[in-house]
Design a binder for these strands. Structure first.
Lengths: 204, 204
DNA sequence: TGCCAAATGGCACTCAGTAGCACTTGACAC
DNA sequence: GTGTCAAGTGCTACTGAGTGCCATTTGGCA
């Protein structure tokens, strides 16, 4: 999210979103995910149940902000390079874009705390990750000029790239001081030889 | 699933499961996922709504069979090698086990047809994939003697390995004639140099 | 100050998912 | 065969997720 929202309206929205997420985090840890209703979360955040759904798509996505915007940012990042650039350069821009776009540290930390104990929360986050993998795989397939269904390399390198992103975020969680995009970029650079080896895989 | 269930009871169970999955596949394609209720599916399969939930955990998992059993099979496969074997040997056994255990071609094809159009169905399948990635990552971390949260390699190689599995299944979908486990094993073998390159990643 | 649009709250509704209990039907011993 | 047991099933009732609609409030702006 923007670090300093413009008007009062935008500031209040951010405040409401964080209040809902904080309430959910607290309640999930106090009594568990299943035992917490959306009514509970909304009441704890002093808004109506109806408002909860105006901020989040569901109980399992209460730590996820604007997934459509993130996917759009990924697509933009993949498309904005020069036509002749190496395949990996586009992937690097993609993961860095995901790590910077709309990055809300408090929600990332909340998901990292609740996710391991509540599979539904982890699965919700993972569902969007699949879209990133699809976008990355399509980019690689187009770049190599191969069929996504016949050649395994685009999918494998896409999965590995998302794993790099997740590993980078995990490293950032251990060390808040650095910028998440920078940590992810570092991780990607160290993984580059491995990603190149995937692209060098024999195709048949 | 077992190709030839033992008694009448077991055969009827398999029949009911497939009837539900077939009805769901047909209805999803006819009128879409959201417009299909579980009542519709159960009615089309001539069972009660209550029975549907005795076979599947939810509408989004109507093509998924016994995920706990698959995860257990993975853990068994990872554990059964000799202590000194190479890390990749255990991973190979793991994905081959996943490709063979409880493999029901009709349901795999159904999920492949509906998944791309219905994100909820795809997400349900991928949710279990996360557990496999966790298991594989833990295996690799233990094998390398490193911390899963500090060293990115276990997660990246685990993601890539699951991508190999998915790519193998995708290849099998294009060519039913071969055994799925065999196709996955082939894909894994071609990816081996790339997986080794991931393990060779600099750690800091 | 007054208008407009965004945001919210409340209500009513559908449907997913669960619990409990009664009933039916394979499996198996005799 | 016959009886017994357990697995599987149907039915009913309930909670809670998620949505559509409309009235009300509130911030942005002329």
């Amino acid at each position: 999210m923007d670090p300093i929202p413009q008007g009062l309206r935008e500031r209040k929205k951010l405040e409401t979103r964080l209040a809902l997420a904080r309430a959910a985090l607290r309640l999930f840890e106090e009594r568990g995910y299943a035992a917490t209703t959306i009514d509970d979360i909304a009441a704890a955040a002093n808004v109506s149940r109806r408002t909860f759904f105006r901020y989040f798509a569901g109980k399992d996505e209460v730590f996820i902000v604007d997934p459509e915007g993130k996917l759009a940012a990924l697509h933009v990042a993949l498309a904005e390079g020069p036509p002749e650039e190496p395949t990996l350069a586009a992937l690097r821009r993609g993961v860095v874009a995901l790590a910077s776009a709309y990055f809300e540290p408090e929600l990332v930390r909340a998901e990292a705390r609740v996710g391991p104990r509540e599979p539904a929360v982890a699965a919700a986050g993972f569902a969007y990750q699949v879209q990133w993998e699809d976008a990355l795989a399509a980019e690689v397939a187009a770049d190599l000029g191969v069929d996504l269904h016949a050649d395994p390399r685009p999918r494998i390198v896409a999965h590995a790239t998302v794993a790099v992103l997740r590993a980078g975020i995990a490293a950032w969680l251990q060390d808040d001081a650095r910028d998440p995009a920078e940590v992810v970029a570092d991780t990607f650079d160290r993984a580059t030889p491995a990603l190149e080896a995937i692209l060098a895989m024999p195709t048949a």
